Simulated assay, not measured.
Amino acid sequence: MSVTVAVPTGNIGKFLLPKLLESGKNITVLTRSPQKLEPTIRERVTIRQGALEDANFILEATKGTEAIYWLNPGNKKAEDVHGWYRLYGKSVANAVQKNRIEYVVNISTIIPEVVEAGVADGIVHVEEFLNETDANVVHLRPGFFLENLLPQISELKFKGTITFPIPPDREVAFIATSDIADVAADYLLNKNWKGKKIHILHGGEDLTFEAATKSLNDAIGTTLKYNYISLENFYKDLIAKGVTKAAAEGYTDIYRSMHLPREVEGIRSSETTTPTTVGLWGKRVLKPKLDSL
Rank of each mutant, 00 (worst) to 15 (best):
S2K: 15
V3D: 08
V5Y: 11
P8G: 12
G10D: 13
K14C: 10
L21H: 04
G24A: 05
K25G: 07
N26L: 13
T31Q: 07
P34S: 02
T40F: 09
V45E: 12
A51R: 14
D54R: 08
N56L: 09
E60V: 05
E66F: 07
A67Y: 04
L71A: 11
G74Y: 12
A78W: 07
G89W: 00
E102K: 15
D121H: 13
H125M: 00
E128P: 01
F129L: 00
N131M: 02
T133Y: 00
L140W: 01
R141N: 03
G143F: 00
L146Q: 11
N148H: 03
L150D: 01
Q152C: 01
Q152N: 01
S154A: 13
S154E: 12
S154M: 13
T161N: 05
E171N: 15
E171R: 15
I175G: 00
D179F: 03
A181S: 07
D186V: 02
D186H: 15
L189I: 00
G195I: 14
I198Q: 11
G204H: 10
G204R: 06
E205L: 07
L207I: 03
F209Q: 09
A211Y: 06
K214H: 01
I220P: 04
G221V: 10
E232G: 10
A240I: 04
K245Q: 15
A248H: 04
G250R: 09
G250H: 02
D253L: 02
M258D: 08
L260F: 12
V264C: 09
S269D: 11
T273E: 08
T276L: 08
G279A: 11
W281K: 02
P288D: 07
L290I: 15
